[in-house]
Design a protein around this nucleic acid. Structure first.
Lengths: 213, 213
DNA sequence: GCAAAAGTGTTCTTTCTACACCCATGC
DNA sequence: GCATGGGTGTAGAAAGAACACTTTTGC
């Protein structure tokens, strides 16, 4: 059973510049890879996942979910490697500290050459993210704590890759009862927009049916 | 990175006696556990999963899907253990060879005392199975190659734990186009029932919306 | 001929989709 | 006062839910 290397990788998504981005670390031979870390003897897999991108992000907690475990022989050059892969969603207002290490953000539709099977892993994570967005309220995890309905709709449109109807979107999300008004408004160009926040008490309110599109 | 044990376990579901059953192997101290095996150096995780219950079942291939990877320190007594868990669906017409080893089938609602976190794992697998049944056509994997609509409906009722309307069920499943008539009928008590089979060409026909209830 | 399971349509309700104009602010 | 994004309702279409009787066979 030994001679098998066990590590954790994380597909970290964030919304930036009107596009969905993934955080990657440099790898050998001009390639890039998913941030990762080896599992320490007394550390949970989730803790390893968090450590894989610690320092890279602000304090605020990210949404983290286990994605899949890849372990076929021959998927990595050299030693037999089993990778437990997580995916994380980072709010768009956290510091994108380009410091510490040489990690960089890439648009998911403009990825560089990737090591091993990491391109395939990202595609799978993306599928899961889209799926998740349709049935649950995962979109909030990519936004600041307070957001306007337009920003939220925009998030869904970017990830799902399709335009949504403004009135239907608003009706659905308000009826679902997963967000609530705040007293504040965001001002900018045009009429100020009311700010909403995710309802902490509405964790599993996600009903049976699809929320979106 | 060493000192971590990597193995694979499988939650094997089958339909029997009008109830959903799970295959378990004896463990220490009067407890039972999910069938499992250690990963060999040149073996894929899926192959390990198959090996974990080989011999126990007939030749026909089972549906196999990765469920989750459990790896928190302290989840198993002794050495730090990471378990990649799969779940499998076995057609109800395969031989239930009680031979080879001492494995036994248990009703999911009458489980014995289980080792480690295996009770929790089975509960999670059951949730996933129910979820899967609603959105996909997974029910067929628990039935023989040919089956009647009543048997299929019965399968769904057992797993979802609720009665379904016969006419609506038939309409929906036929409109979904995932099964097709055969020329044969099953005879028994009452009027003979037409036999259907799963359409091999209808793999991903599963549309956007829920299939069932 | 009767018990047992198979098979078959319609109506009502709910949900979904498509669609266009007025409002509040900054410049 | 006009450009910019915010905010609002309704009607027609589609999907879902509820419901009861006839048919075919074995005994």
């Amino acid at each position: 059973m030994n001679d098998i290397l066990l590590n954790v990788h994380v597909v970290i998504f964030s919304l930036y510049d009107d596009s969905l981005q993934v955080l990657l670390a440099p790898s050998e031979k001009e390639r890039w890879q998913l941030p990762g870390a080896d599992v320490r003897p007394q550390e949970s897999l989730e803790a390893t996942a968090v450590r894989a991108f610690a320092g890279q992000l602000g304090r605020r907690e990210a949404y983290l979910e286990q994605l899949y475990t890849y372990g076929d022989p021959g998927r990595a050059a050299g030693m037999r490697t089993v990778s437990v892969v997580y995916f994380a969603l980072i709010p768009s207002d956290v510091q994108r500290s380009s410091s510490s290490g040489e990690m960089r953000w890439f648009q998911v539709d403009k990825l560089p050459a990737l090591a091993h099977d990491h391109a395939e892993i990202i595609q799978y994570a993306l599928r899961r993210l889209r799926y998740k967005m349709e049935y649950t309220a995962a979109g909030f995890e990519l936004l600041p704590a307070e957001f306007t309905l337009s920003e939220l709709q925009h998030t869904y449109e970017i990830i799902l890759g399709e335009k949504l109807d403004k009135r239907n979107f608003r009706r659905r999300i308000l009826e679902a009862g997963i967000i609530e008004e705040t007293a504040r408004r965001r001002t900018g160009e045009g009429r100020p927009a009311r700010l909403y926040r995710y309802r902490a008490d509405a964790v599993a309110v996600v009903k049976a049916r699809r929320l979106f599109p």
